[in-house]
Design a protein around this nucleic acid. Structure first.
Lengths: 336, 336
DNA sequence: CTGAAAGCGCTAACAT
DNA sequence: ATGTTAGCGCTTTCAG
């Protein structure tokens, strides 16, 4: 590991050639004889030369860098997405700036600005703010999970309406009839789409959503536990199944049921959303809606890169939709 | 959100002043009258000017950027560390490049090189490779969890020897006598330190480590399950307690016990390491050694920054050690 | 207090 | 095929 930063000029001096030749050789451009190119490559290597991407970015106006703003890396849902983004980016020789907003629109906005200063080529964002904030951003931007037919931004999402439909239909197929819903207030948007899907499933059964059994909770285990308490104790409903808008909430509901000696899945059925790795632990076995998180991450980056590379062409809004899948495990009952 | 990148010159032209004045005003340097400074600040703001950090980095030789290389962001252990690093960095107006090496020394090395090209001010690294690789790096570097008295690099770690001692002592205090150990082959170094601590505890009881009950597994749930199978079925030992070198392995051991109808904690006690959030789920309740992960992350960044800012002074190796803590839960038995 | 000019490391047009 | 030069956006002497 050589510590001092060797520049293109150092290499040029060493060899007695002009430094533009070094640049040409290093970038595989023509205008250098094969002989000198080899010579240059060899001594650059020997001297431990590493090109300065700051300087490169300055002249090329491409930093080979993207920003990723997510609310919480400890939620495995985002962990897997970020892994997908990272792998896809790495293949294209891109690096990612990771920004953790903690579900705060203020932090999110601040990160957005610093990323602009860093001159990232594009941004991938899971927003905690209002959609309209990002409608008119003209630099490459991908929004995670904020599908909108009308608003003009790019977006890759796993179909939330369909996921909600699958979840509710499964509960109904299992003969649960009094469904409760715990949304995540951090992303009321996705929660609402899933609720719409659930309404469609209920309609097929000639039923509709009981608004008094819809709770706005928080996307965490503790949030799920508290929402379950509210749902079962203060709403005066006799709920026999809970549709949790993410797995963490589902885990909280299970915790509540365990504390209260409510038997799952017999008395109460529980379904989650996301299919994070912990939901398939043998002690948990949470029935859930699988989202292809890793693939989503890769798709986000690849789509972003497409847009980055199509700078000149007229911008066209990209909307990619992936499919969710029902994973039946042990927190919903099996019909005989 | 203004899309076009306004430069310092645009602002200068707008106001009819030289662009060096703009620079002075923006950076709070003296040499501008308060009147023009205010005028400059206002129109810069109005024009949506954002300084170009690439250019700044080029001249200042400080990019306000650090690289973080970790094996796996889906392991909550690293997730929390990264959150700590991110928060500490953000406070100091630093951004982080996240690199996920997948426990591959080859990827790790490749990321190390790209980070050098990006001219990061420093690197935080959880290495999967050999220690010696990084001994002579002269740019600011923090190694996670690789304490070495002899080797010359900076390091913040949670005392592994002590953690190992606490874990083994607890098992012995609970009257378990035939201890098995499942190491993580990805980081044999940390595992070994913990094993040394365990040996010390055993010694206090007049015992020593049964080498035939030491398994080199893998830091994952499935790795833990497989190692447990090996330990219980192929080693011809009657193990009554397992010290797992991380919580994921512990979860795998619990899974094995559940599959085999081995009762925990009566027949077999299980202790993990790390105290990831999932280990305290009511369905899990894994006894474990707590590591202050978030604090570790903050400490890593703060210590790195100290070194970055002490560029000129003679380098002195920094070794920070935090203390682990025993968390007794339900997978080890209570003595009457 | 302000402007002009050099230079950070690099690429790309322009000469030779 | 190679060298010279300008310039990316900025900070920082050095003049005025």
């Amino acid at each position: 590991m050589i510590p001092i930063n060797i520049t293109i000029k150092d290499v040029a001096k060493e060899l007695g050639v002009s430094y533009s030749s070094i640049s040409r050789a290093l970038n595989g451009k023509e205008g250098v004889s094969e002989a000198t190119r080899q010579k240059i490559l060899k001594t650059a290597e020997k001297m431990g030369y590493q090109p300065n991407d700051l300087a490169r970015g300055l002249v090329n106006k491409i930093s080979k860098t993207v920003g990723v703003i997510i609310p919480d890396i400890n939620n495995p849902f985002f962990g897997e997405i970020v892994t997908g983004i990272s792998d896809a980016a790495n293949e294209k020789e891109y690096n990612i700036f990771l920004c953790i907003s903690g579900w705060s629109p203020k932090n999110e906005q601040a990160y957005f600005d610093t990323l602009r200063k860093k001159r990232v080529d594009g941004i991938i964002l899971k927003s905690a703010g209002k959609n309209e904030d990002y409608e008119n951003v003209r630099s490459p931007l991908m929004i995670i999970e904020r599908y909108s037919k009308t608003l003009e931004y790019n977006c890759v999402e796993v179909d939330n309406e369909l996921g909600g439909y699958l979840a509710a239909k499964h509960l109904l197929d299992c003969d649960y009839r009094n469904l409760g819903f715990i949304l995540g207030k951090e992303d009321i948007f996705a929660s609402q789409s899933r609720l719409n899907g659930a309404a469609r499933a209920l309609k097929e059964y000639g039923m509709s959503i009981n608004e008094n059994a819809v709770i706005e909770g928080s996307f965490s285990i503790e949030g799920g536990r508290m929402a379950a308490k509210e749902l079962f104790e203060n709403r005066g409903e006799k709920i026999d199944a809970v549709f949790s808008m993410n797995d963490l909430i589902g885990l909280g509901v299970l915790q509540y049921c365990s504390d209260q000696n409510i038997s799952v899945p017999d008395e109460v059925g529980v379904i989650g959303y996301d299919n994070i790795s912990y939901s398939r632990l043998p002690q948990i076995q949470l029935t859930t809606i699988h989202q292809p998180k890793y693939e989503l991450g890769r798709m986000l980056f690849d789509t972003l890169l497409e847009e980055i590379q199509a700078k000149d062409e007229p911008k066209q809004v990209k909307k990619v939709i992936l499919n969710p899948e029902l994973k039946i495990r042990k927190t919903t009952r099996v019909l005989k």
